[in-house]
């Protein structure tokens, strides 16, 4: 098991690094960072000053190796745009995104698990159809649109929630619903089919025929077995939420990593973009690894 994890960690790091190289060269090739930092009405001297100050006039390869060696000395680089170390930006912004990711996964759980259970217990009933309808809808609604509509309804027409910002957990409710909704279809379907399979499995049928019946049976046996795959999929979904936070955070003005990523790309803040791509990749892979380990742990058949 340890060997397996170590091997996967090496893959994770090398993938992160590959991506950082790709990002670095692509970004440097397409944009003029000096202009992006200076802004639209900057004077000629100001743009030139920035170009020289950050050494944008030197070759891309030289700059990449500078950055690369810095990483090994624990220096993640300095953001051009924010005038501060990238690491402190990450530390500042991460809590908001973690809160958002956790809350949105909670939303996913709160909606999809009960729906999935009810749908599985009453296959082809009205509830089942409704659950299917919700899944189909959630899959087809773009989340930037859902965000705008949510603001329109729940912040303006009925001012229950704040429009934007991240001061209190209350501010995170609407964004979490928007971000969480996108995972509902996958988790709900998995819950439903998983539970159906277990209910139809022989041992449950036997239990039913020998007098056990009803909710207790479902909770004690069927649900426990059906939840196992759901847990690992939830871990993967949690990993997805970080990279998926870009649009949601921008629409709701949440000051997290996703908005930082968008601002950094638009502001051509290459050091920050690079680290963020790296971080998002690592987080994604970490949660996938976690899902694999969970799978192996929960399902003895996979434990080799």
């Amino acid at each position: 098991m340890l060997k397996f994890i170590a091997g996967r960690l090496i893959v994770v790091l090398s993938v992160g690094l590959t991506l950082s190289i790709v990002t670095f060269f692509l970004l440097n090739y397409v944009i003029d960072p000096a202009q992006a930092i200076a802004g639209e009405d900057a004077l000629f001297e100001e743009i030139e000053q920035i170009r020289e100050q950050y050494g944008f006039d030197r070759s891309i390869t030289v700059r990449y190796f500078e950055w690369f060696t810095g990483i090994f000395q624990g220096d993640l680089g300095e953001s051009y745009y924010w005038n501060k170390p990238v690491i402190s930006l990450l530390v500042d912004r991460a809590p908001e995104t973690i809160t958002l990711a956790l809350m949105s996964v909670s939303v996913t759980i709160l909606i999809s698990i009960p729906l999935g259970i009810m749908a599985a217990l009453n296959p082809n009933s009205l509830i089942d159809r409704m659950a299917l309808g919700i899944a189909v809808t959630a899959q087809a609604v773009p989340n930037f649109w859902l965000g705008l509509i949510m603001i329109l309804i729940f912040a303006l027409a009925f001012p229950i929630f704040p429009v934007s910002g991240d001061k209190t957990l209350f501010h995170f409710v609407l964004p979490s619903i928007v971000l969480g909704a996108s995972s509902v279809p996958a988790v709900m379907r998995l819950m439903r089919t998983g539970l159906l399979d277990v209910i139809n499995a022989d041992y449950i049928r036997t239990a039913r025929s020998s007098g056990f019946y009803g909710w207790r049976l479902i909770f004690n046996h069927a649900l426990r077995n059906a939840l196992l795959p759901v847990v690992s999929v939830l871990a993967v979904q949690l990993g997805n939420k970080f990279g998926g936070s870009v649009i949601t955070e921008s629409v709701f003005a949440i000051n997290g990593l996703g908005r930082l990523a968008l601002e950094s790309i638009l502001g051509a803040d290459i050091p920050t973009v690079q680290i963020l791509v790296f971080v998002f990749a690592i987080i994604f892979l970490f949660f996938n690894l976690l899902a694999d380990i969970l799978n192996a742990y929960l399902d003895p058949r996979l434990r080799l």
Partner: peptide, 15 residues
């Protein structure tokens, strides 16, 4: 506040 729509909403709600 990066989004102009959000700014409008804040202005209307008094933020």
């Amino acid at each position: 506040i990066p989004d102009m729509g959000t700014q409008q909403a804040e202005l209307m709600s008094g933020g």
